[in-house]
Design a binder for these strands. Structure first.
Lengths: 239, 239
DNA sequence: CGTGGAATTGATTACGTTCAATAGATGTGG
DNA sequence: CCACATCTATTGAACGTAATCAATTCCACG
């Protein structure tokens, strides 16, 4: 089941049936990770390319004072560490935020795809460039926007990313984060995260039902959070 | 003069004389950009791969309310937009912070290097991965560290990057940024940037002579700013 | 010299943190 | 199926960091 990946890549290029088959049929290992476990740790040598099939993970670093900071969330369809052959040491860790189903591609499998299917190689490269663009946008988000806009902006991004991966077809998406986890990525305290969410609900911008975040009025939400989807480099602009 | 690039790449792999010659001899266009001019703008299609030969540039986005936010500084030896063939639209702009000397590589020239010199291709890829690692570290810096640590951390990074590019051999480096520009990258106001710099000077951590930032005690500075150079993926750890 | 950009200082305000406590939800074992 | 434990969400109050507003000084350059 690598449908989310195929869905995602199709926002960059239309994949042929053959190319889809390559992705589906590459011999590969599927593993399950328990909630809270690390997939790979800071300092380790990366060994495989991982694809998230279901569940959420995060890239994070731990700080000297014991706190963590999250730099990225990985959702179904996201790849990590396509550069496996280049860097010898992880500069951050990746942890399962929920129970996770992963596909492990060995280096050989990846190299095989990269060398024999240039279009797929391009599509993979596109996906890493989008990851980088997301990092830049997060930096702007952290540096220049108030907490409320920041969290709202984050929700806009995650709605679009969920839709790109074929995980959502309306104005809502599955968000398994606790308020602590959300705060650790937005650079705000747990208490303030709670208050920001309350504000966004009061403003009528979002509501939350269990793990689901619902965005009521995409246009208003976009305007409110100064969200410009260009950086996701997709044709999709939701709703 | 693409020495800074060669110096930088040599922190990843030892380049052969032949490989150095390839870099030196690739036909290429050299241009000068005036301080304050944009190299490429948000929304434009990237056309060339640029290499900074001298001077500083920055990646930035402008926000709706008129402010800017800087997401990266480019110093001699840094490449921009190696992915020129993949994305069709810049999601940010790049501006010359000082007068700039640039090398422009055409797509053909880059593709030629990438296809015929796999070791150089690897080295280029390494450099983009380091750029990405820097973005992640900046995110942690913004999200989790106080302004003083943040600025100090930034100076640590720039000392190491300057040394990697062969631009510094002691504890100081050339930093042409105004306090406004520094603030725009650190997510702090101009006034506060000034106060933070004063504090760092009072603490005896740094001093500033014209455009030069001097770090007096590397160990102390590293400890103070919680600087862990792993993310630069170099063997170098200064001084 | 004089002019404009850059740095510096002071005073006030506001956003977000921290500490502390409570309430709600979820889960586990007896 | 209840009781206890634990994790998550929520609220209140006091504090602190950094923003903003408003001048003033410094400095490089023509």
């Amino acid at each position: 089941m690598i449908k989310p990946l195929i869905e995602k890549l199709s926002h960059y290029m239309v994949l042929s049936e053959e190319e889809k088959q390559i992705l589906e049929n590459t011999t590969r290992q599927r593993i399950a990770i328990e909630k809270g476990d690390d997939i790979i740790m800071q300092g380790q040598r990366p060994d495989y390319v991982y694809l998230i099939e279901s569940g959420w993970a995060c890239r994070y670093k731990f700080l000297e004072d014991g706190r963590n900071h999250t730099m990225a969330f990985l959702i179904p369809g996201d790849l990590c560490d396509v550069h496996v052959t280049i860097l010898d040491k992880m500069d951050h860790s990746i942890r399962a935020l929920t129970a996770l189903k992963l596909t492990k591609f060995s280096i050989d499998e990846i190299v095989n795809i990269m060398e024999n299917y240039p279009r797929l190689a391009h599509a993979f490269f596109w996906s890493t460039l989008v990851d980088e663009a997301i990092l830049r946008e997060w930096l702007v988000n952290m540096g220049a926007r108030s907490c409320e806009l920041r969290v709202a902006h984050f929700f806009c991004e995650l709605l679009l990313r969920s839709r790109m991966a074929g995980l959502s077809y309306d104005g809502s998406f599955d968000c398994p984060l606790t308020q602590v986890e959300l705060g650790e990525s937005m650079g705000i305290s747990q208490v303030h995260t709670n208050r920001v969410l309350q504000k966004l609900r009061q403003e009528g911008l979002i509501s939350m039902e269990g793990r689901r975040v619902i965005i009521h009025d995409w246009k208003r939400m976009k305007a409110f959070s100064q969200f410009d989807p260009t950086y996701l480099h997709s044709k999709l602009d939701a709703l």
